[in-house]
């Protein structure tokens, strides 16, 4: 029991450490490229891709539980959820980026990439929320 708790503590500490290291890398990238909208947009894109990886992991971990697996054995609903999410994010962020320039200027690329990143973070939180609800209910 003691060993298991210690193991959980080590794993969660490592996960927190790894995620804060990644966040530092992102901040470093922004600091290094603050003179260029294009380069900063690339930092946002890289971070958004990393978060998207977390989202896929989270979706797969939900799909792997027997409860959700019984409900959706072909994982069709998960694929639909992900694809609906990506459509919504891309379309909303196009609109968001466009709003900044409204057809004039170049800052919209940076704003669009920041919107993509923020929306990915939000979706990851929303998925975590579903996992937490399920865990609380399963107790």
């Amino acid at each position: 029991m003691m060993k298991k708790s210690l193991g959980c503590l080590v794993v969660s500490s490592l996960a927190i450490f790894a995620s804060s290291a990644q966040a530092d890398l992102y901040q470093e990238c922004l600091d290094k490229n603050y003179m260029s909208d294009k380069e900063m947009a690339k930092c946002n894109d890289d971070e958004a891709t990393r978060i998207m990886g977390e989202i896929r992991k989270k979706v797969n971990s939900i799909a792997a539980t027997s409860y959700f697996n019984n409900w959706d054995p072909s994982k069709k609903n998960f694929k639909i959820l992900l694809s609906n999410w990506e459509n919504l994010r891309n379309e909303y962020c196009d609109l968001y980026g466009y709003t900044f320039t409204q057809g004039m200027g170049t800052i919209s690329v940076l704003q669009t990439s920041k919107c993509n990143l923020d929306m990915n973070k939000r979706f990851l939180e929303d998925l975590e929320h579903v996992v937490n609800i399920y865990r609380e209910n399963a107790l």
Binding site: I62, F68, W71, N77, L81, N84, W85, D126
Partner: peptide
């Protein structure tokens, strides 16, 4: 689609 997960989780 998100709300069907929310519903299922609960």
């Amino acid at each position: 689609s998100y709300c069907s997960y929310w519903e299922k989780a609960q």
